[in-house]
Design a protein around this nucleic acid. Sequence first.
DNA 1: TTGTAAGCGTTATCAT
DNA 2: ATGATAACGCTTACAA
Lengths: 333, 333
Amino acid sequence: MSNIRDVAREAGVSVATVSRALSDPDKVSQTSLNKVHSAIDKVGYRPNMLARSFRSAKSYAVVVLVPDITNPFFSQVIRSIEDRAQQKGYAVLLGDTRGILEREKEYIRRVETRLADGVIQLRPDEPEKQSSYMPEGVVCVNACGCESTKGPRVRIDNRGAAKAVVDYLISLGHKRIGVISGLKDNPHTIDRLAGYKEALAGADIAFDKSLVAEGDFTTWSGLNSAKQFCTMTERPTAIFCMNDEMAIGAIQTLKSHGLRVPEDISVTGFDDISYARYCDPSLTTVAQPAEEIGKLAMDMLLRLIEGEELAQEENVLPAEFVIRKSTGVPCKD
Amino acid sequence: MSNIRDVAREAGVSVATVSRALSDPDKVSQTSLNKVHSAIDKVGYRPNMLARSFRSAKSYAVVVLVPDITNPFFSQVIRSIEDRAQQKGYAVLLGDTRGILEREKEYIRRVETRLADGVIQLRPDEPEKQSSYMPEGVVCVNACGCESTKGPRVRIDNRGAAKAVVDYLISLGHKRIGVISGLKDNPHTIDRLAGYKEALAGADIAFDKSLVAEGDFTTWSGLNSAKQFCTMTERPTAIFCMNDEMAIGAIQTLKSHGLRVPEDISVTGFDDISYARYCDPSLTTVAQPAEEIGKLAMDMLLRLIEGEELAQEENVLPAEFVIRKSTGVPCKD
DNA sequence: TTGTAAGCGTTATCAT
DNA sequence: ATGATAACGCTTACAA
C-alpha cells in the first residue's frame, strides 16, 4: 500500500505538493500537477481517507436512525437521503434501531466518537423523552417531525392531512368513521387524531372513543384491529387508518369477513407507499413527499455540520391527498 | 474535546495506561483502572474512533451495495446484515446504486481508500463483467448469488426453486404456462428460466418462446408485461413471475381485464416479500430466507476481513415453496 | 510555487 | 504493571 510519501518521491516533489495537488490543485503549478498525477498512476496510490478524516477531524458520514428499514416509506426517505449524501461526498451509516432506545444510543455514540458528523432521525420523538438523551454537540435533524417535535425538523402537516381525509369521508356522507391509530403516545398518532377530531367537530359529529382502535403501524396490527369493527353491532361505514400498511391489513380482515371495500365500508391509508396503488382496491391515502423530505433533511443537516445557521428550524412540506378506489359513499343498511 | 492525554494527566498515569485500560483492561491494575475511569468521567472523555481506526488501519465498516433499497426483499436482507454488523461492532455504509455502475465503483472506492473494510453485493453479477472491476485487495461477498457467480457468495437454488413452482403448476393440470422474467441477461433470470424449462421438459411440454415476457423486476414491468398475455388468442392458464412485485403488477392487469385469479388464471411470485401474504389473492411464491442470507453473508465477509479462510466459497441456502391463494386448477375453456 | 516540519489522537514497542 | 516515545498518513502553518 503506497502512501503520499511514495508518490512524492516518485514525482520528485514534496509531500506537501502532492497533498495540495489532490485537495487544492489551483495552488500547484501545471508541471508539478502532471508529475504528481503520473506518479500516482505509476505507484497505484489511493489516498488514505481515514488519515484525512482523522487529520481534518471530520468523518464525512451521517447516521440515519430508522425504526425499521423494511417499512417502504422509510426506505424511500432513506434512498433520497443517500442520494443527496452521495452528491455531497458524505456516506450514510445505516442505523436500523428496531425501536430500541439502546441501539439508538449506540449509534448516536458514533458521532460522539467522531465516526459520524451528524444524525438524521426518522422516528418522531416523544416530547418528554427527546431532549434528554441527545448529547451536547451532536447535531440532529428529525425528518419525521410532528407538532411537538423540538429542534431542527422537517415534517408534513399531519393534523391538516388527517383532517382532509376525514373531511372527504364526511363529504361522502359517512358519519360513523372508525380509526386505526398508531401507538397512543406516538406523536404522529396524536397529530393525526387531532385532525380526525377537528373534522368531526366541523361536521357536528360527536367523538366516539369506541371507534378508535390502537395499532402500531404494522400490517399485522391493522389486520387485528380491524376485527373489532367487523363484529360491532353498529359498524362504522368507513375506517381512517393512520398508515397504508395498517389499511392493507384492515382491508384483508374486512374481506375475510365478507365485507366489500368500498361498497360496504370505506378505508383510507396514510403515506402512499408504492403498494397503495397496486392493492385491491387501490388505496385512498395521503401522499407524503418522501423524496423531498429526505433531501431537505440532508441539506439541513449538512448546513448544521458546516456550522451555518438554518433559515428556519422547522420545514413543513405539503402532502397530497390521493383519492383512489377504497372509498365511496356509505352503504345504507 | 478532551483526549487521552487529558485523561492520563487527570488520572496521574501515562497515556499508555489509559489506552490499555480501555482496549485491554486485563493488562492494567485495578487501582489504575479505577483512576482512569473516574478521570474519564471527570473530563467527559470520548475516545476518538477516527484516530483509532486510522492507527489500526481498520475502519470497522462495510459497504452494502444494493440496486434499490425500496425493494422489500433487499431491505430485509439489509436489516439482517445491519443487525449482524452491529453485534460485531461494524457499521453499515449504505450504497444504493440504482443499478448505476459508476455509483457502484464510487462505493467500492471507499474500501480502496480505507473508509470501509469490505463489500456485500446484493446484485447478481453478470459473469463477464464481474471480475473485471472489483479491484485487487477488495474483499467482497455476493449475497444474491447465482450459478454463474464467482467468488465468495451465498445463494439459493434458483433453478430448483423455479422448477418446484412450475412442477406444482403442472401438477395442477396447467400446460400453457407463461413467464414474466427479469431482464434477459440477469443471472437470476437465467437460473430461474432454466428451472422453468426443466419442469416443462420433465412433463414433455414444449418450450414456447412466445410465452416468455421480459420484465425488469419492478411492479410496473409486471403490470405491463401481463398485458400481452391478456390479449393472446390462446391465453396461458398460469403465469410464473420471477418476483413478487411483478406478480402483483400482473395480477392488477389481469383483474382489470376482467380475469379472475386463480379461477381464470393462476399467478406465482418469487421472494415472499411481506406484502405477498396480504395481496388479493395472497401469493403462491418462493420464500427466500432473507434473514439467513444477510447474516451468513456478513459472517463470511467478517471472516474474509480478518484474513481467515472460508469453509466454503459458496453457501446454498434452502428456499421454501409457499402455496397460497393465487394458484388453482386451470380453467377449462 | 514549493518545501520543511509540526502536529492530529491513538496504539504498540520497548524499556523499566 | 507502567511509562516514554515512535510511528500511522495526512494537512497546514511557516519559511524560503
